[in-house]
């Protein structure tokens, strides 16, 4: 056995690494607490609601896991391109178009047996999301157009597209809100837990997260991706096709955001509903930033944000404190985590 150089024990190293995160979360919560108190609400009750609603009832916990699914996929859709140094702000549109793709297949082939229909529905959502991200990817590759801008603008195009599909192509006139008719029975995701219902998408998300982790950290392609993000010029010199990799990273991100749309349709709504993308893009990007782009941390951060999100809506319901409060807290967490890095550098 080789005696390694003396290093601090494993546990304390972990604690040192966790310290800035804990500090950032605590400081952000304190700042929000001051604000909540100034507004005249009960601060402790607000904290309690935000943090513990998820763990009080089985229903609350399943709700959290159901939010975890699209949130994790959106976070990965942001994180993978970020590894290559590209900002994918188009996850919202990619999710919407993914949902449209899933719905289209689910309605057109409504009578098909589940073994065929469900995989086709999910595949359609993946392809649609990938295609939607490929457009900014191509614009970046061919014309050097800033991907932040083009991905964001594609979101606004998709808002109109989903409205068109839900009001003109397969509208459900009884719904009273832009909604399509339901997809075929065979397109629905089977349930893992029957009551309260948790669909198979949860398992699917875990599998995707593990595959992405293996891809980024254990394969040559993933290594090239990270090398591209770390120093594009050096990567180029060593023969890595930097530009192609950037585009592929965006497309892969789009595929995962698209899957988020497909899972929401096949697992939750069973039809296309305008607004089903909710605020998952915002939460996904915040999760990616809090995880500092580390794929392994993404599911854990996403779970934490899901807990906060379930708590935030409970807080809005029972205490009338607007749920946006929590988004601001999360943005603060990002800033404080970055700040802790600055402090460490000095």
């Amino acid at each position: 056995m080789v005696v390694t150089q003396a290093s601090p024990p494993r546990l304390s190293r972990w604690l040192m690494a966790a310290l800035p995160y804990v500090a950032a979360v605590v400081i952000s919560f304190l700042a929000a607490g001051v604000f909540i108190a100034v507004m005249g609400f009960n601060v402790l009750r607000a904290y309690e609601t935000i943090l513990f609603t998820s763990f009080r009832t089985p229903n609350g916990f399943i709700q959290t896991l159901l939010k975890f699914v699209p949130l994790t996929l959106q976070a990965l859709a942001f994180t993978v391109p970020l590894a290559a140094g590209k900002f994918n702000i188009g996850g919202e549109g990619q999710m919407i178009v993914g949902a449209i793709g899933a719905t289209a297949v689910g309605i057109l082939f409504a009578g098909a047996p589940g073994v065929l229909l469900l995989p086709s529905v999910l595949l359609a959502s993946v392809l649609a999301g990938a295609l939607w991200a490929a457009i900014p990817g191509w614009l970046l590759y061919r014309f050097g157009i800033n991907e932040i801008l083009s991905t964001v603008l594609m979101n606004f195009v998709s808002f109109q597209l989903i409205n068109y599909v839900a009001t003109e192509i397969w509208p459900d006139p009884a719904a009273g809100h832009p909604t399509t008719v339901p997809i075929g029975e065979g397109a629905l995701l089977p349930l893992l837990i029957r009551r309260p219902p948790l669909h198979l998408g949860f398992l699917l998300t875990i599998v995707v997260a593990v595959l992405v982790y293996i891809y980024v950290t254990r394969t040559v392609y993933g290594y090239e991706l990270v090398a591209t993000g770390a120093n594009p010029r050096a990567a180029q010199v060593y023969g890595i096709p930097v530009q192609v990799l950037s585009v592929l990273a965006l497309v892969l991100g789009g595929a995962m955001a698209g899957l988020a749309g497909g899972v929401e349709v096949a697992g939750i709504h069973r039809r296309l509903i305008e607004g089903l993308q909710s605020n998952y893009l915002t939460l996904g990007i915040l999760a990616g930033l809090i995880a500092k782009g580390r794929v392994v941390a993404v599911p854990f951060v996403a779970f934490f944000l899901s807990v906060l999100e379930v708590g935030a809506s409970a807080m809005q319901r029972t205490m009338m404190i607007p749920g946006e409060m929590v988004i601001i807290v999360e943005a603060f967490i990002v800033l404080f985590i970055l700040l802790s890095e600055v402090i460490r550098r000095r």
Binding site: I285, P322, E324, I328, F332, L335, L338, V342
Partner: peptide, 29 residues
Amino acid sequence: FTTTLKMDQFVIGLALFFATAGFSSLAYK
């Protein structure tokens, strides 16, 4: 954050975007 602390401009810009967008509806509500 960018000039004095030399943090990534896009990351800070995005964080400020989310914080301000959230604050806009919070303040109104």
